[in-house]
């Protein structure tokens, strides 16, 4: 798919083929979108809900599926006073139709042809676009050295926990490091604090390896990680960030 050239962004209907609960507050919606033009790992869609009285609410959600996957998957965190997410996590049922448009974005994308080692840093549901990259990497048989540093509040809040465990055990160059910032299960071996410079130097690549870096999560976390990496000597041009907008509301 070319991300360039004029192409009208049209609203279309996707049918919910499957609902996959990920954590107590997060669910994946697997959508069947008949005229889906294809996407790149890291892009998002806009989802629009229309009430009976015509009122519309619209939010952006990152795409979790790889470009190679047969269905389009978005993963949504339920925000109690949100306008869209409480419908998508809790109310929507298999067979329902959801109005969406996309794919959108071209800045925060990764393709498997990029030869640089990859450092992915996620906070909470910021893992979603990075998951699309990890799945894309898996689908294409890439053994590109890739490290994911993923910050969650607690063990139960880790999205894609089993899939990440399985992929990291595959021995094809993907490693996953977790940090749990609020609560840790007994005997927890991973990190137990917010992401800091020490953690980034232990998990990340030496700057001389010139990795491509993608950081996605809540705004304060993204800004702290990006400025820490720049302080550590990483090339600012190699660090791409996406603040939480693509998953909120």
């Amino acid at each position: 798919m070319s991300s360039r050239g004029p192409r009208l962004l049209i609203w279309q209907l996707g049918e919910v083929a499957e609902l996959v609960p990920q954590t107590p507050r997060v669910s994946s919606l697997v959508l069947d979108v008949p005229a889906w033009p294809g996407h790149l790992a890291g892009q998002h869609v806009d989802v629009r809900l229309t009430a009976d009285d015509g009122y519309q609410a619209q939010r952006s959600y990152s795409i979790a599926s790889a470009p190679e996957d047969p269905h389009l998957e978005i993963t949504v965190e339920r925000l109690e006073d949100g306008e869209v997410s409480p419908y998508l996590v809790g109310e929507v049922r298999k067979g329902d139709k959801v109005e969406l448009r996309g794919p959108i974005g071209g800045y925060f994308v990764w393709t498997a042809g990029d030869p640089r080692p990859l450092l992915l840093v996620a906070g909470g549901s910021g893992v979603v676009p990075l998951m699309s990259m990890i799945r894309h990497r898996e689908h294409t048989g890439s053994s590109n050295p890739t490290r994911l540093l993923y910050s969650s509040r607690s063990y139960e809040d880790i999205i894609y926990r089993d899939e990440l465990d399985r992929l990291a055990a595959g021995g094809d160059g993907l490693t996953v490091a977790h940090t749990l910032t609020r609560m840790q299960p007994q005997g927890w071996q991973g990190y137990a604090r917010r992401i800091d410079a020490d953690m980034l130097s232990e998990v990340g690549w030496p700057k001389a390896e010139m990795p491509a870096v993608f950081v996605c999560g809540p705004t304060p976390m993204v800004e702290s990680v990006a400025s820490t990496l720049v302080d550590m000597g990483y090339d600012p041009a190699s660090i791409k960030t996406e603040r939480f907008g693509a998953t909120g509301g």
């Binding site: 360039r4 004029p6 998002h44 952006s60 448009r101 959108i104 974005g105 603040r243 939480f244 907008g245």
Partner: peptide, 23 residues
């Protein structure tokens, strides 16, 4: 700080206006 987003969040809006990928 939470209301602060980045240009990725207006990718759809800019596509409406410019008809191109603008991020």
């Amino acid at each position: 700080s939470d209301l602060k987003l980045d240009g990725n969040a207006i990718g759809g809006l800019l596509r409406e206006i410019f008809t191109m990928e603008m991020t």
